[in-house]
Design a protein around this nucleic acid. Structure first.
Lengths: 140, 140
DNA sequence: TATGTCAAGTCCCATATGGGACTATTGAAA
DNA sequence: TTTCAATAGTCCCATATGGGACTTGACATA
């Protein structure tokens, strides 16, 4: 079964590599920043550490991304009045607009990568990967 | 279908992250170096660019890895007499021994990550990921 | 109110990474 | 045989990344 995970890593890298290169070149958006936008476009009012937990990415990188996105007004950071350590992150309209643009190439590329699979394969893959992802404890 | 690839990336990262951290700390082996050992332990007499093609990793990084592994005598580089640009890479007995040690944690971790899957899931995953990997054109 | 501990983020630093230019060699075309 | 293009690999540099220390605030216990 060791081959399966090797292939998962290979496919993952091959998938994201060109996307992030394009985001960087075209929009000056880094991998971390995209990930944050992605998460916030699905679930609002999150704290930075929740994004870390959901993505498995280290908190200093997320922290940097959050700061950049905030200065670019793509997200807002609302301090929690009850706990000054906390800040709730929300994607702005401007951020959502950019994300909607970014996600187009993402979906395109996903379609290309998954094109060798038929309908049943895709269903199986979706089911299995969801199961795996839910069971995978976040790292770092 | 966009969720499937997101999950693939998440699982891939969560899987490899602790492994490479351990390899680095315990054996001073970087991600690139492990990948090279991995490939060479499966197919011998490869050139650097073939490893790039097979893994999708950039050639300068592979080049660095090859050099380090060579100085540590974990692989050998045999110049092709017919073409001075080329060099065939081979894993040494020492390299194979180290790899056999490394692969233990790799397999262990793979087993942990895949533990939520039953037999049929694993079969499906193996089949689908192989299909995807074969169809995925290498990047970079 | 002091004190210790935990939590959320940020900062600093060393290293890993990738793009692109460069070198050396080969093969093909003129 | 000169010239041009392609190939294999290396080098240089700017940036991304991650570990770990640090800061600030909250809460529990005394």
């Amino acid at each position: 079964m060791i081959g399966a995970l090797w292939h998962i890593c290979f496919v993952a890298n091959s998938f994201v590599f060109p996307i992030y290169a394009q985001y960087d070149k075209k929009y000056k958006i880094s991998r971390m920043e995209f990930v944050i936008l992605y998460v916030l476009s699905h679930r609002d009012n999150l704290m930075a550490w929740e994004i870390c937990r959901m993505t498995g990415l280290p908190k200093n990188n997320i922290s940097r991304g959050v700061n950049k996105l905030e200065t670019r007004k793509l997200i807002t950071r609302t301090p929690d009045p009850a706990d000054a350590r906390r800040a709730l992150l929300t994607i702005t309209a401007q951020g959502k607009a950019l994300f909607d643009e970014l996600i187009v190439s993402y979906v395109d590329r996903a379609e290309t990568c998954l094109s060798p699979l038929d309908k049943k394969d895709r269903k199986d893959l979706e089911r299995i990967m969801t199961k795996l992802a839910l069971a995978t404890p976040s790292v770092a």
